[in-house]
Design a protein around this nucleic acid. Structure first.
Lengths: 354, 354
DNA sequence: CTGAAAGCGCTTACAG
DNA sequence: CTGAAAGCGCTTACAG
């Protein structure tokens, strides 16, 4: 491999001057600089980052601890967001998987490796909103947590603002003129379940509408466990025959909405005409390929990744939990019986938030 | 930071002996080893990988170049697979994004960084099966390509075996007794489109069934372009009224199957009873949450990642293209009118392949 | 089985 | 504006 000394020899300077050029030190004559640049080009020289790291004591590496973020669709966007911000700060990500089923040995080795690489920070990312047990190593270097919450170590935490999202989407349905809105909830084991339900309740109460417990149907099964089936089929008939009959149904997640479309279709009902439907997550391709397109609250994976990384790289990493807003994605499904063809709230997305 | 010398001092040996212990050199007396181990423990010493890299000239880092693999659902499994194999070989992945919309400067900087880190190899992974233009840097270190094919540089390439998958799933439908099987194709711009269609044709021909062009419906639009809609609604009626009427429909991908379920339901037809359906990709949660569960060929993302990485780390990296088999995932949708309740081909998955 | 010397490729701190 | 010296924390190659 060609080193700084080879470049110096060719450029006819000391190797220290080459170092200055590499590091954009202004204290080099323009002519010298040009000669060095040319020599670098000619030799195809590339600085050795291991040497720089050793001498400068800064690795430029951030450890990204992935708890299944590449498995769960879309949560990989946390990585994307972190990467975007890292790039802008000349930091690179070293990614390791710490899956719950990966075994303790594996987990420990991955962390050891990160620390031996002298990472300047650690970002722990979860596949979905849930409680996690953070590795003790996160107490040893600057650390942040995205899409999960921890009880042991205290680190800045970035979570999707479930309740606000639920309130917003419910208000959208209310603004369409719906007064009787059912809610097909999530598996109660999920952290998002109670928060989304709370937002739904809140919006109804603010609108002066009494919450009808009969319209809050039992949570589905099977979100976490592979092949189990959910219960839309079992509850849809109860909903359609209840009185007053709901004109809109809010689903806890897009896959539930998909099942609902199907259940309605097989009963001769058409979403967006006979029944308004809205949901959470914006899981593509479901939300796009459903007809009509599904109106849903997009999970802010990208934004959580960006904000967590920004926090990690900033000097004053203040602790506490930051709730990151969802983006509202309006397609056609929220239009329903007797509602105007256009939304009263006309902005189509919330944006990136604070 | 505590160094090898601090450990040596505490253990009462030379720092060279500490180095031996770290590297599991057998030529150390057991008692000495124990003393050193204890000192390491006490001081919380961790070897500095930058120093090791510099002296040994081996970084232990593999560069993972991601072309949107975290965006497209499930293709992130390529990363997972690569990571599993890397872990087993004590290699760590440095992940960079080279998205097509990320700009040349960005792309170049990411590659520079990887080379400055002295990566021992490069793995380029695509979000979906397509042609890519490989960065020239991939000619400078050992490199492999997963889920895409390149024309410029020649590197070992790992691709999903689309045609074989199509042949297999079509044969499954034939084994169910179906003689009239329609095919709802992919967007012809996709590399998988013609390969899957060829496999479908091949299986029919092998079964002595003439391919009815009318049953190969126009490819859908919208696979690549966000909000465009596909054409299932436009073609389904033609299919249902054609004579002979198909008893099974093979879909180019799971999202098409989802639309088909919906179109059939709204026409009073029930998948798995009135019509058999099968598909490709195994995109969760679609394939799981559809009722009945979707029988589909799972894309071998994980396996491509594993095999590409294995190839990269092996000594004799023979070139050429390796076709990685899909896994057959049998659920209930392929059962159809008049078919036996159990598959004639009874193995439920193909396995990991060669 | 153990150790003293040299050096990997840079940056730091100091001189000129 | 430029350079000579020292040293980051290890491993390599050689001795004993």
């Amino acid at each position: 491999m060609v080193s700084i000394k080879d470049v110096a020899r060719l450029a006819g300077t000391s190797f220290k001057t080459v170092s200055r050029v590499i590091n954009d030190d202004p204290a080099v004559r323009e002519e010298t600089r040009a000669r060095v640049r040319q020599a670098i080009e000619e030799l195809g020289y590339r600085p050795n980052s291991a040497a720089r790291t050793m001498r400068s004591q800064r690795s430029g590496v951030i450890g990204f601890i992935s708890d299944r973020v590449t498995t769960q669709p879309h949560s990989g966007d946390i990585l994307r967001g972190a990467q975007q911000v890292g790039d802008a700060h000349d930091k690179v990500l070293m990614v390791v998987n710490i899956d719950r089923d990966a075994g303790f040995r594996h987990r420990q080795r991955a962390l050891d490796m990160l620390l031996e690489r002298r990472v300047e920070g650690l970002l722990y990312a979860c596949d979905y909103h849930r409680e996690v047990e953070l590795p003790k190593e996160m107490g040893m270097v600057p650390s942040v947590l995205a899409n999960g919450f921890a009880s042991g170590i205290e680190v800045p935490t970035f979570l999707p603002d479930e309740q606000r999202a639920a309130r917003e989407i419910t208000r959208l349905l209310l603004a369409q003129g719906h007064r009787c809105i059912a809610y097909l909830g999530l598996n109660p084991r999920l952290a998002a379940a109670s928060l989304r339900q709370a937002g739904y309740r809140q919006a109804l109460e603010e609108a002066g509408i009494a919450v009808d417990e009969a319209l809050m149907q039992p949570a589905e099964v099977g979100v976490l466990d592979g092949d189990e089936r959910s219960t839309v089929e079992a509850t849809i008939d109860r909903l359609l025959t209840s009185s007053p009959r709901p004109t809109a149904i809010l689903c806890g997640q897009d896959s539930t909405a998909m099942q609902l479309y199907l259940a309605l279709a097989s009963r001769g009902q058409c979403v967006g005409r006979d029944m308004a439907v809205a949901s959470f997550d914006d899981q593509r391709p479901i939300s796009i390929f459903l007809t009509p397109g599904l109106t849903t609250m997009r999970l802010p994976h990208l934004e959580m990744g960006q904000q967590a990384m920004r926090c990690l790289l900033s000097q004053e990493r203040e602790g506490g939990t930051t709730l990151v807003p969802f983006a509202r994605v309006e397609r056609q499904s929220h239009l329903g019986p007797g509602s105007p063809r256009r939304s009263a709230l006309s902005e189509s997305a919330v944006g990136d938030g604070p």
